[in-house]
């Protein structure tokens, strides 16, 4: 059962996941050249100074990469399910619908996490090439909320898509966008250090939140 579920979701999203992965990798190649530029055009120490003491976030361009990836995967996975209400087919399977949707979401989360981990590794490799380890760890600390917001963006997208009524959908979209905005409120490195856990924990609420739109879908989503 799990295998079938995984099989179907993978068939559905594989090209999008691979496409997103390629795009992410290309983006980091671009980031590499972007970070290298000041080292080639001026004294390296000034690039360091700017990064460490002017507090310039020189890798800011990657900010929205993972949330965009999360939204893409959410769309790829759930838009086909709600067009023509195809989700009906899944809901009729001899499986607990909550577990089924949870496994769908887990598959999407897994895809976002895999891309996110590859991103983090590439990011670290690039920064450590040019900067001391203190800067790389600070960059990771700074980037972590951005990467994590990718998961939230994915989950928020699935909710907005699964919700059946447009009014409520707009409400969710506004609230969830604002929530995702919480991960992007600072232009200072490492500034989420004290609140990362808190933010991450409350974001976990997005996982059980998926059951309510599903419940609404099951009880009158198709008209």
């Amino acid at each position: 059962m799990i295998r079938s579920t995984f099989y179907k979701e993978w068939l559905k999203i594989r090209y999008y996941v691979l496409g997103a992965l390629v795009f992410n990798i290309l983006f980091f190649i671009y980031l590499f050249f972007d970070i290298r530029e000041p080292f080639q055009n001026g004294p390296a120490i000034m690039a360091w100074y700017s990064a460490i003491h002017i507090h310039t976030i020189f890798y800011e361009k990657i900010k929205y990469l993972l949330p965009a990836t999360g939204i893409l995967i959410g769309i790829a996975q759930f838009i086909p399910e709600i067009t023509k209400s195809r989700l009906r087919m899944s809901l009729h399977l001899p499986v607990n619908p909550n577990l089924l949707i949870l496994s769908y979401v887990c598959i999407g989360i897994a895809a976002v996490i895999v891309i996110g981990i590859i991103d983090i590794i590439l990011f670290y490799i690039i920064v450590i090439k040019f900067f001391p380890k203190e800067v790389s760890s600070s960059a990771l600390m700074t980037g972590l909320p951005w990467f994590y917001s990718g998961l939230v963006a994915y989950l928020a997208t699935t909710q907005v898509i699964l919700e059946t009524k447009s009014g409520r959908r707009i409400f969710y979209a506004v609230i969830f966008c604002r929530f995702i905005g919480l991960f992007f409120m600072s232009n200072e490195y490492s500034s989420y250090a004290h609140v990362t856990e808190r933010l991450f924990l409350i974001s976990l609420l997005f996982i059980p939140a998926i059951f309510f739109p599903l419940y609404r879908f099951r009880n009158g989503g198709i008209e």
């Binding site: 909550n98 609230i175 919480l182 059980p208 309510f212």
Partner: peptide, 23 residues
């Protein structure tokens, strides 16, 4: 049923925390 009901509260909590910041 129960799951859906609890789930509704998780969305409510998320909404409240966002409103608590922006309102």
């Amino acid at each position: 049923m129960m799951v859906a009901r609890l789930s509704r509260y998780t969305i409510i909590i998320i909404s409240i925390s966002v409103m608590g910041i922006y309102m």
